[in-house]
Structure formats: structure tokens, C-alpha cells
């Protein structure tokens, strides 16, 4: 084994990481592989058709579809929407028990066991990124064994949302110095599953990382920029002029 360096202390860590995601919509085909990958990685309950109809489907990442143009000259466009991990997150100040907060790695964290289920955060999220467990989630018997042991199974009365696969972040960064973690060494489930590599994940505090370089892409935009939520998730899209 290589010489073991003493891991960074908590204070050193505070400036080491700022996790972020960049989603290139010009590459997105709307296949929903990310949705399925997320669901199985994060123990997200299984949705039945009725859940979608009632607007209570659980999807930490969902695909929004819209049409560009008029039939027959029409194009389907897709936007994967997940928690934007806003730096000025509307969900955080409204939580009466501090169950959701911003941590020093740039993540908007949800502490399930702290949550008392007021649902204020969900009401305040302009991205509809949060889902509430109105009922105890159930899995079919034969799917129980595929639950991810690294992720808490949420109970009834708890709010949940995309965690940027924090279990993978923990596993990859634990007992390591930031410089020992190469860019792209690990990815959240959605990024890993994306067949067209539309999604990129990395550390914004590393100027050499792919996500850092994409911050200056001329196609960049933040979702609902005018709301001033300052999302860390960045989208890339060529402006769609009809017929282009």
C-alpha cells in the first residue's frame, strides 16, 4: 500500500470540494436511463400509474418533455430536472427544524431523521425537486434484496430528494486527500448511466475539472435564473430557433 497520508481535517475539507453537475441538453435523447439508475441506486419507491396522475410520483430526477415547432415540422425536447443544489436555496430557510441545509461541499442536504414533515420545503421549491412520503413505501418481495444498504430507506412522513448520490461521494472521498481524487473518478448513478454522456459531474473547486471548464460554455444557462436561487447545476443548450 502507498504511504498513508493523514486525511484532511474537517476544516481543510470545507474548501476542498464543491460538487456540481452540468447537463448538456443537446445530447439528451430522453431515454430515461438516468431516472431508472437513480431509482435503483437511491431506494426511490416504485411508482404506479396512479402516482403520476395524482402528481405524487417519486422521481429524484425526472424528464420534462416539450415540443418545439408545429406539426409536422416538430421536435421533441427533453430536460432532466433534479435538485439544483441551489446556493440560495428557497427550501432551506423555511424548514423549522433545520432538516435541510447547505453543507460545506456545496450540497443541499436532507436529513431524513430530522425531518418532521411540514412540507414547507417542497412547497417552496420552484423545480418541484422534492417528494413527500405520504405513505410507507413498499417494494415487491423480490425487489427487497436490491435495496441499497448505503442509503437510508425513508419512512412515511419524510421529505426526500436528490442527494447527488452522497453515499458515493462519501465512499470515494473518505480518508483521502482531495488531490488524490482524480476528476471523474466516481459519478452519481444518473451520470454513470447516461448513454450519450449528456451529464457531467465533478468538483467546481478544482479548476482543471470538466465541470469547471464547462462553466464558460457559451450555451450555458441556469434553470429559472431570474428567481435568484443560484443553482449549482448548469444546463447547456443551443438556442432552438424553429426549423434549425
Amino acid at each position: 500500500m502507498a504511504t498513508q497520508t493523514k486525511p484532511q481535517s474537517a476544516t481543510d475539507r470545507s474548501t476542498a470540494f464543491k460538487w456540481s453537475m452540468v447537463i448538456d441538453l443537446d445530447r439528451c435523447t430522453g431515454c430515461e436511463a438516468c431516472v431508472v439508475a437513480c431509482q435503483s441506486e437511491n431506494n426511490v419507491p416504485i411508482n404506479e400509474e396512479s402516482a403520476f396522475i395524482e402528481g405524487r410520483a417519486f422521481e429524484w430526477i425526472r424528464l420534462e418533455r416539450y415540443w418545439e415547432g408545429e406539426w409536422p415540422d416538430i421536435k421533441a425536447r427533453f430536460i432532466p430536472v433534479l435538485c439544483q443544489h441551489c446556493e440560495n436555496a428557497p427550501c432551506e430557510p423555511v424548514c423549522p427544524v433545520y432538516a435541510t441545509y447547505h453543507n460545506n461541499e456545496g450540497l443541499n442536504v436532507q436529513v431524513y431523521n430530522r425531518c418532521v414533515g411540514t412540507r414547507y420545503c417542497g412547497a417552496n421549491c420552484p423545480y418541484h425537486a422534492r417528494q413527500f412520503n405520504f405513505w410507507e413505501p413498499v417494494w415487491p418481495e423480490d425487489l427487497r434484496h436490491q435495496l441499497n444498504p448505503d442509503v437510508t430507506v425513508r419512512t412515511r412522513g419524510v421529505m426526500e430528494k436528490c442527494s447527488m448520490c452522497i453515499q458515493r461521494i462519501r465512499r470515494a472521498t473518505r480518508s483521502k486527500t482531495p488531490s488524490d481524487i482524480p476528476d471523474g473518478a466516481f459519478n452519481p448513478a444518473c451520470v454513470q448511466a447516461c448513454p450519450t454522456s449528456a451529464m457531467t459531474f465533478g468538483n467546481l473547486n478544482n479548476p482543471e475539472s470538466k465541470v469547471s471548464k464547462l462553466q464558460n460554455d457559451e450555451r450555458r444557462y441556469h434553470m429559472f435564473e431570474h428567481l435568484g436561487t443560484a443553482p449549482t447545476t448548469l444546463y447547456l443548450k443551443q438556442v432552438d430557433t424553429h426549423g434549425a
Binding site: 481535517s9 442536504v109 436529513v111 430530522r114 442527494s163 462519501r170
Partner: peptide, 12 residues
């Protein structure tokens, strides 16, 4: 011990 005390160290 200057180990992390962020909630998301132990709860996620």
C-alpha cells in the same frame, strides 16, 4: 479529533 461533524457524514 477534528473529524467531520456535518450531519451528512453520518445521516444520508
Amino acid at each position: 479529533n477534528n473529524a467531520p461533524t456535518d450531519c451528512a457524514t453520518c445521516h444520508y
